[in-house]
């Protein structure tokens, strides 16, 4: 790894390695002492080893194990290769799979179509620098610093049928005690379908602020003269935003898109803390975890689900790498 290390021209100036600087580097390279080369090798080598050893190696392991049957007990010699059997069972004999898959898609759709645009809207409004912007911004951003596990608890404080805010509020407004009485109270987290929607509301509470901050940073970098020019040309606010500002935000859009997709696929804490992903709250991440934690693990089966999750996430990851690093590769 340390074979060809030389000081490089920062891309900020050169935008990547040009053939001429390449030659210059090779000359420089000989100037680096052996010790420097060793230092550089270790500076990259140790962290890279840790990263590859704990992430990429297990990822490959997931792929291999997905074609096997193993209950996780005994040595590796107990592993049996069974071809695509795990995938067949997953698709046809495993009732929790499709609902979980569907939930992941709904989660993604809700975040992309509702939470993210809302975050963007808040960013645009707050970018106008009205009075009190800092306060609004702080309030909207506050949930982002909480873990989704805490968000899960706070959601329970809001949703609990007898003790929660919503139902008690309904009693106070309507004067009718039925809203918190057993049997007639709406069970926000116990009713399948409804409970997933309520989880999305709670998770969205956090996601909106996240998206807002990313866009606020992006909007700040938009050159004001562009807007002024648009204003002079007689464009209204909406036209200015969609025709002038939004295109400039393209890099942010990539980040937000990828963050949204990845967060949707990673979602775990909130449903696990509410009911371990049972009763309509299943997600792929929870099903995989349940197949490892538990008295008897289905290692191959869990791995097959992990591979499905990998296949879904690989697209956005490649897209992101291409968009952010593609230019440097040229």
């Amino acid at each position: 790894m340390s074979s060809s290390s030389v000081p490089s021209a920062p891309p900020a100036a050169a935008g990547g390695a040009s053939p001429s600087t390449g030659r210059k580097r090779r000359k420089r390279f000989s100037l680096l002492t052996r010790r420097d080369k060793l230092t550089l090798g270790l500076m990259v080598g140790i962290p890279a080893f840790i990263h590859i050893f704990l992430i990429w190696m297990p990822m490959l392991g997931s792929i291999v194990l997905s074609f096997t049957s193993w209950n996780g007990i005994g040595g590796l010699d107990k592993i049996k290769f069974i071809g695509f059997k795990n995938y067949e069972n997953l698709f046809s004999n495993y009732p929790p799979f499709w609902p979980a898959f569907e939930n992941n898609l709904i989660w993604l759709a809700a975040f992309l179509l509702i939470a993210t645009p809302l975050g963007m809207l808040m960013a645009v409004i707050l970018d106008q620098n009205l009075k009190g912007t800092r306060i609004y911004q702080s309030v909207l951003y506050m949930p982002v610093v909480l873990s989704l596990a805490i968000v899960g608890f706070i959601a329970q404080l809001m949703y609990s049928p007898n003790m929660g805010f919503i139902n008690n509020f309904l009693v106070a407004v309507t004067g009718d005690p039925k809203w918190t009485a057993s049997g007639t109270a709406i069970d926000w987290l116990g009713t399948p379908g409804l409970n997933f929607a309520m989880v999305l509301v709670a998770a969205g509470w956090r996601h909106v602020g996240y998206v807002m901050v990313l866009y606020l940073a992006g909007l700040k970098s938009v050159d004001n003269t562009l807007r002024e020019a648009a204003a002079i040309d007689g464009a209204n606010a909406r036209q200015t935003f969609f025709r002038v500002v939004f295109p400039v935000l393209a890099p942010i859009n990539v980040v937000v898109l990828v963050v949204t997709i990845i967060e949707s696929l990673r979602a775990f804490d909130i449903v696990y803390i509410i009911n371990k992903g049972l009763n309509g709250l299943g997600l792929l991440s929870v099903l995989i975890t349940n197949n490892i934690l538990g008295e008897a693990s289905l290692i191959g089966f869990g791995s097959a689900m992990a591979v499905i999750l990998l296949l879904i996430s690989i697209g956005p990851i490649i897209y992101y790498l291409a968009r952010t690093m593609g230019r440097e590769a040229e």
Partner: peptide, 16 residues
């Protein structure tokens, strides 16, 4: 590699 690794959902690697 580093960037992609950071973006992988954790559950992809947890079994091994």
């Amino acid at each position: 590699l580093f960037t992609a690794g950071n973006l992988l959902p954790q559950q992809v690697v947890i079994v091994p």
